[in-house]
């Protein structure tokens, strides 16, 4: 046997490396190193990003005095009472505030889905006088700061006796003022092949039928994106709810949450964290199940 002539492993490797012009061994070692480094960087970044969130979840099960100066996520003693206390801590049970938020979200969903898709259809598929002008106005209104119209709107809604009702928050969506979603629908409708529309037209369909039976069924991803963003933005909205809702029985979840920060009574962190988690759960669920549409929606329209 010729085993005696075979050199030991390191020598063989280094000889191979010297002989080969591209040095595959070293190259591969390098690329493994590079990939691992990138993964390490990603994991560190991900942990840094998410740690406060996970910590808040963990802390909501700790007694308030143990929340302070405690780095660990897992509670040393599990305390579920924060949720019970927090739920009843304000003048209404917290479920009432959640319900108020849900009612507003439902109204806004209905409004945005119906009216923004209608307007989107007109802009994408119909010829009418002044279309470019209106279209430009619609695009510009996306960027208009809400603050410049909120004061007159407040005065207007006050005279209509709508303060402390949900109407000031829902009616604008019923009137398609969330132009961002119109734009999203326009983008999508433009991509639907003309042939589909022509075929329906030859079959004698008018615009309402084309819209309902050709356009909408083909625009499900855009509708889903609209629904998801409407949900999240309305659920998170604070500014306009703060302005239009001041009475306790109409307060929404974010408004109620803020009451926990009352400087007079001192903040009760345990129950406050617990209720914070409660308000974040719906968004998290939407994120979990609607992620594909979220990512698509942002990528195609590039907003928020």
């Amino acid at each position: 046997m010729t085993t005696t002539t075979t050199p030991d492993l390191p020598t063989r490797i280094s000889r191979l490396a010297d002989d080969s012009p591209v040095r595959p061994g070293r190259e591969r070692w390098r690329s493994v190193l590079r990939t691992s480094l990138r993964h390490a960087a990603m994991i560190v970044a991900a942990v840094l990003m998410i740690y406060p969130l996970i910590w808040m979840v963990g802390s909501s099960f700790k007694p308030t005095e143990l929340i302070f100066r405690d780095l660990s996520v897992l509670p040393t003693e599990w305390d579920f009472s924060n949720y019970a206390t927090g739920w009843e801590a304000l003048s209404q049970p917290f479920g009432r505030y959640m319900l108020n938020s849900a009612v507003i979200v439902a109204g806004c969903l209905l409004g945005n889905l119906v009216t923004c898709s209608m307007a989107g259809y007109a802009f994408a598929r119909l010829q009418f006088r002044g279309r470019n002008l209106w279209f430009a106005m619609m695009l510009i209104s996306i960027m208009l700061p809400i603050h410049v119209i909120i004061v007159p709107r407040y005065i207007m809604f006050q005279q209509m006796d709508w303060i402390n009702t949900f109407w000031p928050l829902i009616v604008p969506k019923l009137l398609a003022t969330d132009a961002f979603f119109i734009f999203l629908m326009v983008q999508f409708f433009r991509g639907i092949p003309n042939e589909l529309e022509e075929a329906a037209r030859i079959d004698g369909c008018g615009h309402p039928r084309i819209f309902l039976s050709v356009m909408l069924p083909n625009a499900v991803p855009a509708l889903a994106t609209t629904a998801i963003f409407t949900f999240i933005w309305t659920w998170n909205d604070f500014f306009s709810q703060l302005i239009f809702l001041t009475r306790d029985e109409v307060r929404t979840a974010p408004l109620a949450l803020r009451l926990f920060l009352d400087p007079a009574t001192g903040s009760n962190w345990g129950p406050m964290f617990a209720m914070s988690i409660v308000t974040l759960v719906p968004i998290f669920l939407v994120f979990l199940f609607g992620q594909r549409y979220l990512v698509q929606g942002i990528a195609t329209t590039g907003m928020k």
């Binding site: 119906v114 009216t115 209608m118 307007a119 259809y121 007109a122 119909l126 010829q127 009418f128 006088r129 279309r131 209106w134 106005m137 619609m138 209104s141 208009l144 410049v148 119209i149 007159p152 709107r153 207007m156 009616v171 604008p172 019923l174 009137l175 398609a176 003022t177 119109i182 008018g206 615009h207 819209f211």
Partner: peptide, 25 residues
Amino acid sequence: SDQRAALAFLAPWFLGLFGITLIPL
């Protein structure tokens, strides 16, 4: 027929644009 259809499809938006955006502006 587009002209009339456009008016119908854009009705909520026009109402919003004038009623609660431009006039308040």
